[in-house]
Amino acid sequence: MTAYIIRRVIAAIVLLLVVSAVTFAIFFLVPRIAGQTTTQLATQYVGKDANPASIAAVKKNLGFDLPLYEQYWHFIKGIFAGAHYKFGPDAATCHRPCFGYSFKSHVEVWPQLKSRIPVTISLAIGAAVLWVVSGVAIGVVSALKRGSVIDRLSMGVALTGVSLPIFFTGQLLLALLSYQWGWWTNVHYVSITADPAQWAWNLILPWVSLAFLYSALYARLTRAGMLETMGEDYIRTARAKGLPERTVVLKHGLRSALTPIVTIFGLDFGLLIGGALLTEQVFSLQGIGNYAVGAVQDNDLPKILGVTLIAAFFIVVCNLLVDIVYAALDPRVRYS
């Protein structure tokens, strides 16, 4: 098991390197392929008084005149050793881990990402708990009461949930609960360390809107998985052995049906931590997704690069965790 984890961790690191190289190439190589010169790249950071001298200075300062592999090496080196730039009287230092230095707003990308990660994680964890618990519970009940009113009703609600985009449910909740009835006024993120109760209260609306979408999906997945599993021979065997129904359903049925759910949960959760773009936009939460949108609007390549890497990192890590959880969840899976 330990060897397996080490192998997976090494593979994850290699994967992150590949992702960083691909992302780097997308943002630095593709413009060149499309005919954009390094001078044009530099021009967008010069401002309104562009002249050949100032463009040349920016190009040199930002390293645009170096070969691409060297620029990539500087980027990777920055993560471990930090980097230095000059945008004024003193050299600006990008401390390690340097995930880039915004050439437009002149700030280090990593501290900005770091300050936003708690917002996105708060959003993702709360919503994940809600959707997993409610989704799986509804799925199990629907499967066990197949064809009943409960099954039809919950699957109908689930279908609605899957169909409604977050910017609709989110805006609806805000319009009714915040602006019409005033139950939640001026919803904004409060740090959990500053005021845990306010943290949770202000996050309820984003959690609910996000969880509504996902729990619907998980309910349908769980129902399908449970229906299939509960028809298996070993379930019949378990019942024949005289095991209580509760044990049959939870230990033998649900445990097996959960395997695909865990897989998709890993991916969904990783993606969400990488930036719940729409939810953060609707509720104006200053998280990773909101940061990504701003970075793209400003055409700020280092910020885009940083946020892409962080998003990829979370997805890789979540998938790694999923693979490890498999072993605990499914007795048929053993790593050697």
Binding site: I26, L267, A292, V296, T308, N319
Partner: peptide, 23 residues
Amino acid sequence: MNSRKATAALALVTALALGASAC
């Protein structure tokens, strides 16, 4: 795992990013 998932995720992030740039 995973290069496919990671690549898909990267593509999604990139697509969303590019889409947002239109604003």
